[in-house]
Design a protein around this nucleic acid. Structure first.
Ligand SMILES: [Mn+2]
Ligand SMILES: [Mn+2]
Ligand SMILES: [Mn+2]
Ligand SMILES: [Mn+2]
Lengths: 155, 155
DNA sequence: TGCAAAGTGTAGCTTAGGTTACACTTTGAC
DNA sequence: GTCAAAGTGTAACCTAAGCTACACTTTGCA
């Protein structure tokens, strides 16, 4: 088609609000990759909590808490194993590897921080908890630092 | 297996940090459904921006800005059509329906607000823009109101 | 001691979202 | 006017994540 120059060249756009193509693509790409790790993060966080709270993490408990079928949970646990985050033997519950425990720790801290910031901004606690469950996976290290700073400065 | 009572009954857990099963399941379910609309939201927002800035929204431009192949963009545009958010005729670009425009407006306002709050918290602008691209899809109406309130109160 | 209920695992299906490869339109430039 | 390059559409394939249905283990309790 040999790309018409009429509406696309340079920056003479009406509102001048579109970011550079590559910049925008990089941002969306980051978001997509965050989504692909979100599920792993939620699983390891939950498994760590169950292990700490109940002494064991069983597929059915995990499934019930996530609101999915046990079959779905079991398949995701396989993905955790493939990713080197968890171990599990048939009928014997799920455990975290060192790597899984390390991830769970980071994820738990981040979750807490996101909830605290939301509440500091005046978000009611149930909304803060619910929204944090999704937001946490998209908060970069840079943003995390700013959050910590903000909470500290604010007492 | 008849569920052993030993470690699961009541609330006598060690750390007492786990939310009620149903509450937690509801939160995770909300997050999952937000993820399923995130892609639609990003597409309509981008299409609206392209229409405003360039006068047209073509599959290849959309694909380049999202950082995906044009084939992927075209398939997602089909999903937008199925959802009643967009129209498109072969080789003729993409347009938004009234519903699509309305969604784009809401999404743009929300995107802006999230970026502004992040920056107000001290997040550098590129990180704010990048993180907002993911965060925005998980911000509830309740949280949105709190954000607006916070920005107003703070000048 | 056994057996039913609960839990676990697997198979088969679906949708979403991504890819590459290839064929078909469109259109600006010559 | 032609025609090549750019854009568009479609097919075939992949993985992730969800589901239901069904078969197999485990284990508390009668
Ligand atoms: Mn989460
Ligand atoms: Mn979490
Ligand atoms: Mn977005
Ligand atoms: Mn956005």
């Amino acid at each position: 088609m040999a790309r018409s120059p009429s509406a696309s060249d340079a920056d003479h756009s009406a509102t001048a609000k579109l970011p550079a193509e590559g910049t925008q693509a990089r941002r969306f790409g980051k978001t997509r990759s965050a989504q692909s790790t979100a599920l792993l993060e939620d699983y390891v966080e939950l498994i760590a909590d169950l292990l700490a709270g109940e002494g064991e993490a069983r597929p059915t408990d995990i499934a019930r808490r996530l609101g999915v079928s046990h079959a779905t949970a079991i398949k995701s646990i396989s993905r955790l194993k493939r990713a080197g985050l968890a171990t599990a033997r048939p009928y014997r519950g799920v455990f975290l590897t060192d790597k899984g425990r390390a991830l769970a720790d980071r994820v738990r801290v981040r979750h807490r921080l996101v909830v605290d910031v939301l509440q500091a901004l005046g978000v009611p606690s149930e909304a803060a908890e619910a929204d944090a469950e999704g937001i946490e996976h998209h908060v970069s290290e840079t943003t995390l630092k700013a959050f910590a700073q903000f909470l500290k400065a604010r007492g």
